[in-house]
Design a protein around this nucleic acid. Structure first.
Lengths: 216, 216, 216, 216
DNA sequence: GATGAATGAGGGTTCATTCAT
DNA sequence: GATGAATGAACCCTCATTCAT
């Protein structure tokens, strides 16, 4: 209590603003993902980030601001990854398969994204409504999918009239629902849905569903 | 449960245990659905139920007990409604269509069920784990779907090897994800997913997806 | 909930007023002894007594009334036991030894008495103040002890001028403090005061103290 | 701890952590002493300390933590005062008399210490069990008394084989029981034990008891 | 004599947030 | 940029007690 604080350079604190911000954001994402917006605790976030509580307010305004920042960061992350898929250069069916696979894998590897979205929807999207960035992020995805569908139709592989947004929602939904609701589903069906075998089965099932959905 | 209660005096209070219990449960379901488990407030539930706060504890033990009771009641409700579908007497494709339609309509008319399930999954199913009733409720559902699929195969309409659990998860997931995530999806795609037209479009899309998924 | 309650004759309830009263009193004594007045719970008492909570109020008025009744019952008990001592027929030193021994044994065998008294003193004796019985019950001990001391003086064994009340407080206090404070004393001295050996040691020590106190 | 605090503004609040802590601790000690652990009220403590309720948790964790802190502080206080007695430099009988007198006076002037200890014992010493400091505080006391007894034996004044722990328990117990149980004892003996005269009588009686206990 | 249902005040505790430095 | 101390409202829950039957 009365020790002189020499050489402050402990990891996780100190004078590296960008790093502090990043640590807070990561800690917040983990906390929101685990406990939801209502269940998240500012104290835990600060502790996990190794930061002073006051800093959260300094950088993000308030709890909701922090939540929105987490959400935006995760959206940016997945959209970034999607762009790297480069479906344009693939044969239409292969492109679709790849997108399905990617979406599944992403959900599997980033479960925090699912719970973050669930929280935002529980709160009726009131954070995202204030986000300027998020709308712009998403047109490329729809455009990309639209082009794949068009190429499939032109190649005589896919049927006409498929709405890329509806299809994307199916692609995401097939995996999302399975994973997001894994606890209740496992329980009511008396079956562990998260064994490697079960996961592989779902991946196969999803591919079939989506490819059957578009075929002529 | 459906017996006429004589001589009610003050509305919402007084000596009618079953009614008091029911009112609390309904109020709780609404509150949990709207705010999640963490965001739900015992005070609001009591007020909305017209009951003394103490009564919640008297009947349900604690907040978690109340949450579990809400969850079980909703599960019982949907499974009850499903049983009334009587898919056994329908032609296989009609039966499937009917189940898809029912599931969609149910999610649409009972949005509280979706958020309740999301909350339970956010908490990793820890309430349902203690439920004895819920597992037993669900085997009839799977059994019913299995029989439909079997009849479809025998009639030469459906392909073999479809897992009824995987299929049910798709049926539910197609509607669930769309509705549960409607706020974020509407925002990122810049399109109101809840207009009558959009809803009708989704219903059609879902039917196609599922029927295409099973066809030979 | 709608079962007809046939043949009510479960043990611990039913139509035996005196028995019900007794069971409540015993349960209350145990509860007060264990948790103190402030920490005692009406619910626990009722449950332990196998009685309806309302009955506690029916028989004893309120929590304080119940506490006083417990206290009085324990006082009556020890006074009863004391009367059986019959120190009059013993040689003075033997009489003293016997009293010391009795007091020690009683405290040891009835630890609930100690905590009950502590509770009452914490509350500044406000229950006992309203008791009419307790004053009348007052210990025959003082009279008995006075006679013993007198006989001791006359026999040239004890010194003059010893106040029987002071001496009695010493006799009780030597054991009471040791036992009542056994947890803190054991801890601060790093020694378990409740081993058979330690208890025997204390009994011996006490006898010596008291006998030395009166000797010429 | 004894440094002068400059520029105090509002009394009882503000930015003086050590002072805030101290005020809370004092208020808690008084409250616990008066009402016991179960009967103590966090609200009252905060109010009396002129502090925000939240601060109690900030500094002491919870009610039990606060209770333990109170207990430790009081133990530290009496042991400190004892050390100041410097019995080493006194003739054995004088040393003993002084210790007896001191212990009596301390109990008389610090009745809160008695009730605090009673509370801790009611709770079976569960707080003290977690204290690391308390054990260490007490070996000096025993050591000091042991040396006095030894010197008394060597001087041919005291008898051999007296256990300093047993003797200390007697020294403390003689006063403790009298004072701690003053309400019930006064009531059952129909005599006010707290008049100056009565108190003086007890002090004399105690000295005799203890000195007679050790004499040859 | 006995019961289950109901009450309102208040229990300890925790919350997101802000102050002074 | 960063900190520890402080805040007041509100959290879930429990209390002794009483009502209606």
């Amino acid at each position: 209590m009365m020790d002189a604080r020499r050489n402050r350079r402990t990891p996780g604190a100190g004078r590296d603003p960008e790093r502090t911000r990043r640590r807070i954001l990561d800690a917040a994402t983990a906390e929101f993902a685990r406990h939801g917006l209502g269940g998240a605790r500012i104290d835990r976030i600060a502790r996990r980030a190794g930061a002073n509580k006051r800093m959260l307010y300094y950088y993000f305004g308030d709890k909701d601001g922090l939540f929105l920042a987490s959400l935006e960061a995760r959206y940016a992350h997945i959209r970034e990854a999607e762009r790297a898929l480069q479906l344009e250069h693939l044969e239409p069916r292969a492109a679709l398969k790849r997108l399905v696979r990617f979406t599944w894998d992403y959900c599997l590897e980033h479960p925090e994204f699912l719970t973050l979205l669930n929280s935002e929807n529980l709160h009726q999207g009131r954070h995202l409504r204030h986000s300027k960035r998020v709308r712009a992020m998403h047109s490329p995805l729809v455009g990309m999918l639209r082009k794949v569908l068009l190429r499939g139709v032109q190649a005589g592989l896919f049927r006409r009239g498929i709405d890329p947004v509806q299809l994307y929602i199916s692609i995401a939904g097939e995996g999302y629902f399975y994973l997001s609701n894994r606890y209740t589903l496992s329980r009511i069906f008396g079956r562990d849905l998260m064994t490697p075998r079960a996961l592989a089965g779902r991946a196969r099932h999803m591919s079939q569903i989506i490819l059957n959905a578009v075929r002529k």
